[in-house]
Design a protein around this nucleic acid. Structure first.
Lengths: 242, 242
DNA sequence: ACAGATATCGTACAAATAACACTATGGGTA
DNA sequence: TACCCATAGTGTTATTTGTACGATATCTGT
């Protein structure tokens, strides 16, 4: 047994490790997007046997000069061109047979992007990048279905405890859009009046003064998430909850 | 950039990775124990420069034939002789300079043990294993203080949402012991009657029929956590909360 | 028997949640 | 231009849950 954190043959320790244990570390990103048809994730065709006919999450090996958080951000930025994206570590998956080529331990992340910004899908060399509705996904390459399910559970929990739903909506949105997002992701319906009252009490949404355009019914007021107000409230012991 | 999950030069891929990137993966365990003097964690002297005078968490390299969960269980079992221990993955720490010997990405776990079972401390070759009160810990080797703080936050959260406090107490305990545990870990006081009523409503504690012995006051009733009752309730949509 | 120590119990008030239905406003269209 | 359609927007009440608070009971030790 290696003595780790308790000393031992210090100088040769890491060399021994590398000689004996060939382990690669990767990150995998569950990238959530949302529109009227529901919650989606971003996938790419997998051409690694035996998963040639499946889709996989976006991921990459963690480079020697970056943290796993940085690797996840890099994957996102490289694939989508987007920066400043909500990203949260979920957990490590390390089953021995999870990767056909050998030992690959992966750190999973989930992220939330505004689906309206998906111009990167139009590029020629997007390698088959595509949105799939979460509900329609029954299998993925590797253990990515498990990773997706685990990340979805995490998303559901965080959606109720933190103001992150806004990251999935356009920067300006109606209260109905917000409620429908919650209902769609969480999987149950909410009372319209109670939902609106709760949001109103939180005092973290601000009206733009504008309303919807080009709708053939009474247009709804448009709101945005007031991050400054939220963070100010945080300092005073306030906690988000829906 | 390596194409991961999207194919590429498949056969040589992992060899390339291992050649280019020497990354080791470890686990570190924050092992919590509790007695009347408060919450403690199990530490061991570190003899790796530059941390010779500090204490460190228990950890080890992840072996090629085990998952990180298994590695954490192994560390616990090897160091304490204890099995069947509550263990929960916290998160990955991967700062580039977190380990003096090179790139070591670590997966942190926290675990809860009944401090009464710490006979392993009496063994001759326990290598300086010792309990330290969480409150008194100001520095540790590596980034272990950060790992401890992060794990403690996780523990606080889980303590309120899951019936895990019992894992820190003797298998039979009084309601006061339980309440004092909660107050001590969470850092605030609770109303005695309300606390008891909540637990009574949860219906997951059973009285043994016995009472305390050798106390010079009215002896309290002894209870145990009824895991079967709890899991039965779980199926019916019940959720723990304190 | 009585002093000391902790165990055990109930009630009143406040706050949060849940259930529920109608009017308002715009665009489309006959 | 009148009316139809679709969605926006709004208050009240009942129920549940949380919070604050003090008196009596039971045991040990002297």
């Amino acid at each position: 047994m290696h003595k780790f954190g308790a000393g031992g043959n210090i100088n040769t320790w890491l060399d021994q490790i590398h000689h004996e244990y060939k382990t690669a570390v990767s990150v995998d990103c569950v990238i959530f997007g949302y529109d009227h048809s529901g919650l989606k994730i971003l996938l790419i065709p997998c051409d690694m046997p035996p998963f040639e006919n499946r889709l996989s999450l976006l991921g990459d090996i963690v480079h020697p000069d970056e943290t796993t958080d940085e690797a996840a951000h890099r994957v996102l930025s490289t694939r989508t061109g987007l920066d400043d994206i909500y990203l949260d570590q979920v957990q490590v998956f390390s089953n021995l047979n999870r990767h056909p080529l050998g030992r690959v331990i992966t750190v999973s992340y989930y992220s939330l992007i505004k689906i309206e910004n998906d111009d990167f899908l139009l590029e020629k060399d997007n390698l088959g990048l595509q949105w799939k509705n979460v509900k329609d996904i029954t299998e993925l390459a590797f253990d990515h279905k498990l990773i997706m399910d685990t990340s979805l559970d995490r998303l559901k929990r965080n959606l109720r405890e933190h103001p992150i739903g806004f990251a999935l909506l356009p920067s300006v949105f109606t209260l109905n859009q917000l409620q429908t997002l919650y209902e769609s992701v969480l999987g149950f319906e909410m009372d319209k009046r109670n939902f609106r009252r709760k949001l109103s009490n939180l005092e973290i949404l601000k009206a733009t003064g504008e309303t919807q355009k080009d709708v053939s019914h009474r247009p709804a007021k448009l709101y945005y998430f007031d991050k400054e107000a939220y963070e100010e409230k945080l300092k005073n012991g306030f906690s988000f909850g829906l």
